[in-house]
Amino acid sequence: MSYILKRLGRSALTVFVVVSASFGLVRLLPGGPLDYLRAQMIQQGGGDLSAAEINRRIAAQTNIAVDEPVYVQYVDYMTSIVQGDFGRSIWYEEPVASVIGPAIPWTVFLTASALFLTFTVGVSLGAFMAYKEGSTFDVTSTGVGLVLNSTPSYVVALLLIAFLGYQFQLFPTGGRYASELTPGLNVPFLASVLYHGMLPILSMAVVGFGGWALSMRGNSIRVLGEDYLRVARLRGLPTRRIAIRYVARNAILPMYTGLMIAIGTVFGGAVIIENIFAYPGVGFYLIQAINARDYPLMMGGFILITVAMVVGITIADLTYGWLDPRASGGESREAY
């Protein structure tokens, strides 16, 4: 029990440190929200507005206490996030939660679908490669997996949008669903959501499955060489049962932590992809916030991403021992 408490405490500390560091770092960005607004006004032909006029308008449009020292802003901010108040977005003039909240399901849809695809395809492929170890299929797949695994997802995204989106016009190049449809649980809407999400999901899936496949292949080969497997074969167990109950289970187990970490990236994993596909999700608003130096909105995005990651890792940590009793025993249970 004390281990669990300690582990949770450490997670909370991690979140605290990351949030504090983010708070400081975003303020080191050149320019601030006021500069951004001032720039907007100057460029909108407000060049003839006096500085006082511009500052007055800016003061009227922002809710941040610009004159307060940073440490006061920090204490205020930390106090309010503990109370669940993430502040108001400077650019959107709405509570941060109302900007990010509606975007969350869309991001989760993209990243979760991509993760599901990469994991299932990767694991199946890896297992198959292990069984065919040394064959042409294995060698080719390993090569392809390595290449794809080292390709950044945005490169694939740009290629997909250029060819399948613009050149051949097979898929939409932006948006979440066709505007004519009524959102709800109806087939045309869901189909449209899937259709619009296809390229972003593919961009992430194409580069993701190789890693899982290679891990799975390695693990499976190791398991296949184990004594207990030889015993199982000698016992005359069906191949199918050996493959699933003996090999797959044991080969997947070491990948559990990786999977939980991947689940932790569910909010932050699609930042660039969402911007390439003009897909208004969490990452999309995060980039907008960074450009506009919208501190509260940026922090909201960072906190969401951090918390998800820490929760993912903590869950992996706390449950690993339960999944794999060999790893039980206090501190040594840490899975990463």
């Binding site: 050149p30 320019g31 006021l34 500069d35 951004y36 607004l37 001032r38 720039a39 907007q40 100057i42 460029q43 500085a51 511009i54 450009n291 506009a292 130096r293």
Partner: peptide
């Protein structure tokens, strides 16, 4: 060359 908002919002103004 500076980030546009830094240029207009800070350097220029």
């Amino acid at each position: 060359m500076k980030d546009s908002s830094t240029y207009w919002g800070k350097d220029y103004s």
